[in-house]
Structure formats: structure tokens, C-alpha cells
């Protein structure tokens, strides 16, 4: 951070040029990775391997995150709702908060921590040990071989993981509502389900696709731009997690705005 600020104050023009080049490279990588999805060859084996790593490998942390988030939401809602004599609305609050916001965002942030760092360190190590150069020398496009499969796997698996996170979170909320707040299961589930609108369900499925793209492309970009040996791999890993986390939260803001804008059309 200190070096970024130093570079900014020492030569603002140079900093600006570098920033533009970075954005251009990021956009070009994204464009080429997307274009590769629609042309041959497609590395199916690599896609399935990545789906296993991302999906099955992240299942435990997503289940734990979802469960405790749902439970905490139910506990926290009690204090706020009791003042208005509305503890019975816990189901609504847990359901709306989880499905609209916390489910997709927390799943994405957990995966950013786990997978953006993993992808950046894997590709970073390959870059500094010249494996990427070797791949190009042997006639393989590293973007097609390494980046595109990770993007496809991530945008397929993150929505599924988000659904699991939402579901387990609801179960966590229900457990607290039933055994601590003494709300009947029937009331909890009917409130939780009836309050949802189609736009909420669309949101909880669209957001992970966008977040999944951000996590995978940011991890790949940081990895492929690695230089400076093992120290560089460490920097890339940190950069991938920080950048993807910030971009997820920023993208969430814009998607929410779009969803609110289009909600009347979606729910019609």
C-alpha cells in the first residue's frame, strides 16, 4: 500500500498510465478467456477437475459459513424484533437477509479467500518456474488451458454452493427460532418462503455467476502477472484475495441496484 501511495505521489502521470495498462490487460484476459469458451479445443478434464476442487473442496466451509450465519441472524433478530413484538417475523428476516445478500456475498468472499489465492499461487508458481512459457513453447495457449476451465468451473459451482449456503443458513436460523425463540416450525418456514419474490431468487443465482467470474479471472490474472520468484507468488496471492473481495462487494452494489430497478418486471 505504501509503495502504491509513493508511486502515486512521485509521478501521478506514470501511475495513471500503469493503471490504464493494468485495466487493459485485465480486460483483454477476460475477453480472451470468454471467447475461448465458444471455440475448440475445450479442456473438459481440466474443467471437471476444477469443479471438484472448487465445489466439493469448498463444501465444508460453505456449510459452516451458512449454518452459523443463519443462526446468528436469528439470534440477532430477536433483540430488534422483540421491541416491536414481532419475534414471529424471524423467518422473514433470516430468509430475506440470507437469500438477497449474505448467502451470495459470504459464499463468494469465502471462495475468494480459498480459491482466488489458490489459483493465483498455482499459476504464479507456474509463471516463475517458466511452466507457462514452456506451455506456450509447446504450442498450447495457457489462457485456454488454464484460465477458461477455471472460469467455467467457478461460474458453475458458485451458484450451487450459494444455494447450499442459503439452505443450510435457513436451517441454522430455523434451529435457533425453534429451540431458542420458540417459534413454531410451520410459522418460520411459511414466513421464510412466502416473503421471497422471484427477483430474490434471480438475484441469488445471478450474483454468484458474476462473483465466480470475478474470483477466477482475478486469481488467474494475478497468477499470470507474477514476477520476482517466490516472494512474487506471495504478493500475487494477497493481491488476488484483496482485489477479488473488493470487486465482489462493489459488484454486489451494482447488481442490487439493477435488481431493484428490474424487480417490478421480474416479479410481474
Amino acid at each position: 500500500m505504501q509503495s502504491i501511495l509513493k508511486a502515486l505521489f512521485e509521478s501521478p502521470l506514470r501511475f495513471l498510465v500503469k493503471a490504464i495498462i493494468e485495466i487493459q490487460s485485465y480486460t483483454l484476459l477476460s475477453g480472451r478467456a470468454i471467447a475461448n469458451m465458444f471455440t475448440r479445443p475445450v479442456y473438459w478434464k481440466e474443467i471437471i477437475l476444477q469443479m471438484d476442487r472448487i465445489g466439493v473442496g469448498s463444501l465444508i466451509i460453505i456449510i459452516l459459513t451458512g449454518f452459523f450465519t443463519g443462526a446468528v441472524l436469528a439470534i440477532q433478530s430477536e433483540g430488534a424484533l422483540r421491541r416491536y413484538g414481532a419475534v414471529s417475523l424471524t423467518g422473514q428476516l433470516v430468509s430475506l437477509t440470507l437469500i438477497r445478500e449474505l448467502g451470495p456475498v459470504l459464499s463468494a468472499l469465502m471462495l475468494a479467500g480459498r480459491m482466488a489465492s489458490g489459483i493465483a499461487s498455482e499459476l504464479g508458481s507456474m509463471t516463475v518456474s517458466e511452466q507457462i512459457s514452456a506451455m506456450r513453447a509447446l504450442g498450447t495457449d495457457p489462457i485456454r488451458r488454464l484460465v477458461t476451465p477455471r472460469i467455467i468451473a467457478m461460474i458453475l459451482m458458485l451458484p450451487l454452493l450459494t444455494i447450499i449456503c442459503d439452505t443450510v443458513g435457513m436451517l441454522g436460523g430455523w434451529l435457533i427460532a425453534s429451540y431458542k425463540l420458540l417459534i413454531s416450525s410451520n410459522q418460520f418456514w411459511s414466513d421464510a418462503i412466502n416473503t421471497l419474490q422471484l427477483s430474490d431468487v434471480v438475484g441469488t443465482l445471478v450474483k454468484p455467476v458474476v462473483f465466480g467470474f470475478i474470483i477466477s479471472i482475478t486469481g488467474c490474472y494475478a497468477g499470470l502477472r507474477t514476477h520476482g520468484g517466490t516472494e512474487g507468488v506471495g504478493k500475487s496471492t494477497t493481491q488476488a484475495v484483496v482485489s477479488s473481495s473488493i470487486m465482489i462487494i462493489a459488484a454486489d452494489f451494482f447488481i442490487n441496484n439493477l435488481l431493484i430497478h428490474f424487480a417490478p418486471v421480474i416479479n410481474r
Partner: peptide
């Protein structure tokens, strides 16, 4: 372009410094 370079690269073998084998 990168695809055009493929045919050139198919006629060249490269031995990298540390081997650069795929882990």
C-alpha cells in the same frame, strides 16, 4: 499472431533452465 507462431514453435524444442516440467 499466437496461432501463427504455433507452426514455428512446433519446429523448435526448448530446454528451460530448471526443466520447467509441469508439476
Amino acid at each position: 499472431t499466437e496461432p501463427q507462431l504455433s507452426s514455428i514453435r512446433s519446429g523448435i524444442g526448448m530446454v528451460f533452465q530448471e526443466g520447467a516440467l509441469f508439476d
